[in-house]
Nucleic acid binder design. Structure first.
Lengths: 336, 336
DNA sequence: AACACGCGTGACAACGATTACCTTGACATT
DNA sequence: AATGTCAAGGTAATCGTTGTCACGCGTGTT
């Protein structure tokens, strides 16, 4: 029935000690006589004993496990982040519980509660749009990744969304573009909102009009982004440059431009993607590496696990523009 | 200290029952009077009680958790597979422990042992190259995904690697190619080996020579694939068509071809990738959907959890060739 | 000589839920 | 009326490990 019928008591019996002493050996407690330690070690090896982590966790009150919640696991950005965190956790003997909130606020709370009920020692969460204030009453350390939670005033590990967007729009404009379109995901998502703010700031500073027709602010996937791009290009006065605020939507834009053979439209993407440098023209992007973000988050969580208090200050990861060609296409002289 | 100071005894106390009855209500046992059930329910809601899953798991002997082990989490193929499994597990209240074996046989055993020590109720494993015979003595159900384990004679959920590779090579040949190169990952990996076998079968059947110079059989990443492609193209008699047996390596091939502006070389990839249909020419691929594979694996695991015995028979998922252009480029007349 | 102290160790009680087993009373059956 | 059946609920043991406390012993201190 049992996974392995070998219990600590069996080890203790074989070594001729009490379970407590065997436990000490296993936990590397220094206060054990060398020869006793030896006998226990031998019994462990011979019997093939393995701790029952469930029992350990119950006794200790926490589980050596970190939970991570992201909107979608399949998104390459989050997949890479998960990978990085797993790599950092593994050597410390920490396991990773992965869950997605499925971009659904209802699901979101349930998923986090489920992880907490499992007594994870810590949590890394990319919030979607649920209210997270309930976490204030929870002692489990939580680090927020990529966005701030609603209803909670706490620091997060984020990238410079606003600044990056601002810079890339300025970049596009420096090639003569005045009609710059914006594609974003759902604006209730903080990253989308901030990137839009960067876009707006740049446009205002440049004294360029923010046309309603050039604002596609609800593209949740590549297909929608493609449709929106097509719509914009069909306008009487279409944009000459496009800024897509997310890798996923960028795929849609690229697809639309490609199918229409519009190699004259300038394009820049917030977020790199696999073949961005191989397309013709190669895609200019703002690189924001999920691994860096993840690493910072895990470091912060480790500190919290060691007792550091939650910081109200953000950790902001810088981003950089990678010019590859698509963002440097000049604006053609206006037709009108 | 505790996550939530509310224990089952508190609920029982508030409802005026024994913990046993409260437990019955929580576990949906029918043998509870409606009004008692009501009182307990109320106490649960009011106190905000949540089961301690650690305690439950210790008592029950298993944890409502499924572990998944893949070579690399960041690989889009496995990321999608993980996503699918998580989506299937969530509604059943099953959590997902994700771990990677880091393509390292030493790590592999440790990772699986760690998950078993956690008393997961089941395991889905994409084996790398460790010996898995130790699992024969383990009662936890394990389903193998994408490959068979070494040292164990058991069914797995796999795709038709050999057949798919065979078909795509025949496809390339039907456009006049005789000099067809092969790029694979490490051949100790079953998928790589089988895809190579499909290639070999096709070549033999077509009576085409299998040139050593056209076999790059150790491309673990895109960079190596790119280098190998460049080497081949620099040969005196380079290939006119290339078959890459893995998405990751395909990215390298695409990069090499693109940078050399070689739009004359035919190319096909085992495994689709994000912008394959947007490149010029668009990339012909063998589509093998990670979600389908994952779904089958999870279904099989569910059956095993319900007591079904391990099947020695494979579940083979069919694959299909998606012709997009790059694989239909004709062979130019030989120069010699 | 009395005392405190550190060390190695073990007995025992948690941790919080489930489960095997038991009691009780209501009702049906003979 | 006696008995059997079954629903509803309780008691105490238990899952495997670790923390608390106490013990015996040798040593250095006063």
């Amino acid at each position: 029935m049992s996974l392995s019928p070998v219990r600590l008591r069996d080890v203790a019996l074989a070594a001729g000690t009490s379970t407590k002493t065997a436990s000490r050996v296993i936990n590397g407690d220094a206060r054990v006589a060398t020869d006793t330690r030896h006998r226990v070690q031998e019994a462990v090896d011979q019997l093939g004993y393995q701790v029952d982590l469930m029992a350990r966790s119950l006794r200790k009150g926490v589980d050596d496990t970190v939970g991570i919640v992201v909107p979608t696991i399949g998104d390459p950005f989050f997949a890479k982040a998960i990978e990085e965190i797993e790599q950092m956790a593994l050597p410390r003997g920490i396991n990773l519980l992965v869950a997605s909130n499925s971009r659904d606020p209802k699901c979101e709370r349930k998923v986090v509660d489920g992880l907490l009920a499992r007594r994870v020692s810590g949590l890394i969460v990319t919030p979607f749009s649920a209210d997270y204030s309930f976490l204030e009453r929870v002692v489990t350390p939580v680090v927020f990744l990529d966005r701030h939670p609603n209803g909670m005033d706490v620091g997060a590990v984020i990238v410079d969304d606003e600044g990056g967007a601002y810079r890339i729009v300025m970049h596009l404009a420096s090639f003569g573009h005045r009609r710059i379109a914006l594609l974003t995901d759902d604006l209730t998502i903080e990253t989308s909102r901030l990137r839009r703010e960067g876009y707006v700031r740049a446009m205002l500073e440049l004294d360029l009009p923010i046309e309603q027709e050039f604002q596609a602010t609800w593209c949740v996937d590549a297909a929608q982004a493609e449709a929106c791009t097509n719509d914009m290009l069909d306008l009487d006065h279409p944009p000459t440059a496009i800024f897509s605020a997310r890798s996923e939507t960028s795929l849609g834009v690229v697809r639309a431009l490609h199918l229409r053979h519009r190699t004259d439209i300038a394009f820049a993407s917030f977020g790199d993607f696999a073949t961005a440098d191989v397309l013709s023209p190669a895609i200019t992007v703002i690189d924001h590496d999920p691994r860096t973000l993840a690493r910072r988050a895990m470091e912060m969580l480790s500190e919290r696990l060691d007792g550091a208090p939650a910081s109200p200050v953000d950790t902001i990861v810088a981003v950089e523009v990678i010019a590859r060609g698509s963002g440097e296409l000049p604006a053609l002289r206006a037709v009108s």
